[in-house]
Design a protein around this nucleic acid. Structure first.
Length: 558
RNA sequence: UGGGGCGUCGCCAAGUGGUAAGGCAGCGGGUUUUGAUCCCGCCAUUCGGAGGUUCGAAUCCUUCCGCCCCAGCCA
């Protein structure tokens, strides 16, 4: 059998891999990377790219990868997210080195380093208000002006910073800034803020701190403390690299990490922004962070995506510096590719139409043994009860049809998958004219073989025994947004493009009896329909709920 | 009009001076008791445009065009 994308061992030689390989060849014996999420939301498919990159680089080069919570902004962060992030990283198949790290774990050291910069005349306490600071910063085309507080004495700065630390100053009173260059063309170098006053409770450090470092003042030093060799981040941080390096070279840090930037993942027909995902959840457009329509890892998991398929997808997409938009079709390919090889087959009728086999005795019960996987007999078999009354899908029957319709047509034959060939003889209608039943006859000579008279039966449809099938609920998912780029139209909000048909709930679906023991971790292929798994939160034994992960590729177009 | 990036097939992406990989999607055909899978074939005389250097350029130079990021006491 052809290897799946997930089994592909030859990894493409992207630029990060080359840089690291060169460093290793040049004598770097320790490769250490880190995945540094801020615990202010759930992880999504975009994070998966970063996770796969960081962990796989460490794995490939015999190094280690840390998990570090970038928790410098207590007001936006929660412990719930810390737990969820750990679960998602593990689910994806990675294990970080040692215990999870926290930027907040370095607050003492960071504070000490801030004092160090003050003592060296490289940082000062600035009392400009936020608005004034903005005005002094200049614009993209005009240089900024020096703050009037820029030349305070070391002693005064030390005293003021200590007051900030003790919580003696109200929020917003002042900030600690690095003294770099207010005329720098790179705005990040115009005396960036290092510390701001926040009288906030921190999920890790409690009420110990009244001042919190900014991302820029925390990230590089945290990397240095942990001995990170390659600090991989997304393109928007490229302009921060000079500042990242400025702090490292002006502080007595224990190591010199290097920052490299790659393009973040963009997917069409969805949004991959924590802020927007959070909005979908809080405004109840979806049932939660783990709604199967969400591009979050927890949503994809509940939907039925496998970790291997997401890893394969990340490999497929590659790592470059050019930002593009990946077609969701590639994600769908990755999951179909994986599931086709793994998923046991089963039959489930989504839109049941009763069929009576008039020449089959009502007192008879036959059994067919069907393979769980057509290409993998080693996966085993299951039993299919066959009786006089069956269900087939309404979409698989037409009273008249063109020759390209390869299913059941009145007066013609079709094969019931794993069972007999039947012929539709008569349509039974309800009071409203709706077809409620089909009267058919079966050909006993077609069990496990084609008609011996050489008749050609082209179509094959799935079915279920009416007396033995399970009544189940099936949820079909479509893309969450109706347009490729929901964020593109600036005159509207992405919420205007939510697909009202993104969720279709089907009740009264008829599943073959072997599905009674379905659990969320077994993904099935419902033959001719797609890949499904029991919903991890709402499916119960006896009241099964299946999520359609993804439909089968369909060249006919239902 | 400042700074930093990016532009190779509809999408992703190799290629870094020697004459355009691969994947996704699409389109033909074959196998098939899943219109699935699998198999075979097709799918960029051309690399954002224009000049130039060179025996030779997607790769070097010049210039132009387009797109993205940066003016949080967010990350």
């Amino acid at each position: 059998m052809k290897p799946t994308a997930a089994e592909q061992t030859e990894k493409p030689a992207h630029f990060i891999r080359k840089i690291i390989a060169d460093d290793v060849a040049a004598g770097h014996t320790t490769v250490r990377t880190r995945f540094p999420p801020e615990p202010n939301g759930y992880l999504h498919i975009g994070h998966a790219k970063s996770i796969c990159l960081n962990f796989s680089m460490a794995q490939e080069f015999g190094g280690a990868c840390n998990l570090r919570f970038d928790d410098t902004n207590p007001e936006k962060e929660e412990d719930e997210f810390i737990q969820a992030i750990q679960q998602d990283v593990r689910w994806l198949g990675f294990e970080w080195d040692g215990a999870p790290r926290y930027a907040s774990g370095y607050f003492d050291q960071l504070h000490e380093w801030a004092v160090h910069l003050i003592k060296h005349g490289k940082a000062y306490v600035c009392h400009l208000s936020a608005e004034e600071t903005r005005a002094y910063r200049g614009t993209l085309t005009e240089p900024g002006r020096d703050s009037p507080y820029r030349n305070r004495s070391v002693e005064e700065n030390l005293a003021l910073f200590e007051q900030m630390r003790r919580g003696e100053l109200p929020e917003g009173t002042c900030v600690l800034r690095a003294k770099i260059d207010m005329a720098a063309p790179n705005i990040n170098m115009r005396d960036p803020t290092m510390y701001r006053i926040r009288h906030a409770h921190h999920h890790q450090t409690g009420d110990k701190w009244k001042i919190y470092p900014t991302y820029d003042f925390a990230h590089g030093q945290s990397d240095a403390i942990e001995g990170i060799t390659h600090s991989l981040c997304t393109l928007e941080f490229e302009d921060h690299r000079p500042l990242y390096e400025w702090y490292l070279s002006n502080l007595p840090v224990p190591s010199m990490p290097r920052q490299y930037e790659f393009a973040r993942l963009n997917l069409n027909y969805t949004v991959v922004s924590k802020r927007k995902l959070k909005q979908l959840v809080s405004e109840k457009h979806v049932s939660g962070w783990d709604d199967p329509r969400m591009p979050t890892l927890s949503g994809l998991r509940r939907r039925g995506y496998t970790p291997a398929s997401i890893r394969a997808f990340c490999d497929l997409v590659g790592v470059t510096r050019s930002e593009g938009v990946v077609d969701v079709g590639m994600l769908e390919f990755a999951i179909r590719d994986d599931l086709d090889k793994q998923a046991p087959r089963a039959m489930c009728v989504l839109a049941p139409l009763k069929v009576t086999i008039t020449n089959f005795d009502a007192s008879v019960l036959e059994h067919f043994t069907a393979q769980l996987h057509p290409q993998k007999p080693e996966m085993g078999t299951r039993e299919l009860p066959f009786t006089r009354e069956l269900y087939i899908d309404r979409n698989d029957f037409r009273e008249t049809a063109e020759k390209d319709f390869k299913r059941l047509v009145l007066g013609q034959e079709v094969r019931l998958r794993n069972a007999y060939v039947i012929r539709a003889n008569e349509v039974v209608r309800g009071a409203d004219g709706q077809i409620v039943e089909l009267k058919c006859t079966y050909d006993p000579d077609t069990r496990g073989k084609n008609p011996s008279d050489g008749r050609k039966v082209k179509g094959v449809i799935h079915w279920v025994s009416a007396a033995h099938c399970l009544d189940v609920e099936v949820r079909l998912y479509d893309r969450l947004f109706t347009v490729e780029f929901p964020e593109e139209d600036k005159s509207k909000t992405f919420l205007d493009f939510i697909n009202p048909q993104s969720l279709t709930i089907l009740k009264g679906c008829k599943a073959e009896p072997s599905l009674a023991r379905a659990t969320p971790d077994t993904r099935y292929q419902f033959e001719r329909e797609g890949y499904f798994c029991a919903d991890s939160v709402e499916s119960q034994p006896g009241q099964l709920v299946f999520n359609r992960t993804i439909g089968l590729r369909d060249s006919f177009g239902k």
